[in-house]
Design a protein around this nucleic acid. Structure first.
Lengths: 215, 215
DNA sequence: CCTTACACGTGAGTC
DNA sequence: TGACTCACGTGTAAG
């Protein structure tokens, strides 16, 4: 047991390193509870310093894990560890933002890769030629999909002036630029109806979802 | 000016908050340098405590910026700030890794998107069915590319059991799984020669590089 | 009351 | 020798 010489103990020789203290470090279990004022004060002080040490261990433990999770943080003092962490976090956030921006052109609708849910959207392309419509169509890939799309397009007025098709992981995304649909709404409505049929058509039974080259 | 009552000052009433101390806090400029032992000790102590306070300000400043750069860190004690930082940093690193892995399947050769340079590679697929060959072919997209590929494949033994095609930004990447090429090298050589012709064929003059739907 | 979190000054160690 | 970083125990205020 340590005897506390005064209210200002010059030095209490702890093992200097951190370490879990044994459970028999009991604060308030003196026999028959004498509870002199001075004694309770000493006990409270010990309890206080103990909890403060636990807090320090907690904080320093987090410093240690932080040093492992980020590079070049070992052999750095606490302030520098935090500063470097801030710097690297900013870098990581920028990297994530850049790479997300690379996958989508502004909107999530503009992702170049096929989405996981079927979707059909028509969009008037102003700024370029008059009457240009961009149709975007996402669905499961299947044998004959291109043929179905071609048939649907031949059923409406207008012609395809450009097409981009992406097939990956069994999903297909097709972007079609169509000109000459007509001035009114009828052309758009007809196009939407025709492409909706393509999306909603079930995969031909008995065939896998693989995409086969057209023969 | 503060008078230091003893070696163990009970309380020095600082403004309690941080704050830059005025420059006129001078340590060693007593007139004619009396330099009693006790005095130098007090001065050194003050210098020490001052620099220690500066260190604390530095660390706490980094905590503050860390709280601003990451969300949900305000109103958290230091240990939790560090713990949350570790968690979010791990999340960010995972996000970066995932998004990098999404763009390439391990090797840069395995990028699902078409590369910028023409390339043809054949690869024996062991582990699955016997005699499965994976052919990867990157080139500019062009009208009739699929037809050219189909013709090239019909000129060799074996049949296509699976195909994935990506066309984006005028570039085309095609991955073909071919079975039944034969046991020897001849099949592979013939396949490579046939596909090389497809890649090296120039785009038909007078047409744009756009990809048109097959009619 | 009790617990918790922080700032403080100080002793000790390192370069 | 300083200039520094850290751990420590304590004072103090908030819940």
């Amino acid at each position: 047991m340590l005897s506390i010489p005064s209210y200002y103990p010059k030095q209490i020789s702890f093992p200097k390193g951190q370490g879990v203290f044994p459970v028999n470090t009991i604060y308030s279990k003196s026999f028959f509870k004498p509870k002199s004022k001075a004694e309770t004060k000493v006990i409270a002080a010990k309890k206080h310093s103990d909890s403060e040490r636990r807090r320090r261990v907690r904080i320093n433990g987090q410093y240690a894990t932080l040093r492992t999770v980020l590079p070049n943080l070992i052999k750095m003092d606490k302030a520098s560890v935090l500063a470097e962490t801030v710097r690297q976090v900013r870098e990581l956030k920028k990297a994530v933002a850049e790479v997300e921006a690379a996958c989508r052109h502004g909107d999530s609708d503009e992702c170049v890769l096929p989405g996981g849910v079927d979707k059909l959207s028509l969009e008037q392309c102003d700024g370029e030629q008059e009457g240009l419509v961009k149709a975007t169509l996402s669905c499961d890939d299947r044998p004959g999909l291109i043929l179905d799309i071609t048939r649907a397009l031949s059923s409406v007025k207008g012609r395809v002036v450009r097409a981009e098709m992406v097939i990956v992981g069994g999903r297909s995304k097709n972007v079609l630029w169509i000109q000459g649909l007509g001035d009114g709404k009828e052309g758009m409505v007809a196009l939407r109806r025709a492409l909706k049929v393509v999306i909603d058509r079930p995969i031909f039974a008995g065939l896998s979802k693989r995409f086969y080259l057209p023969q």
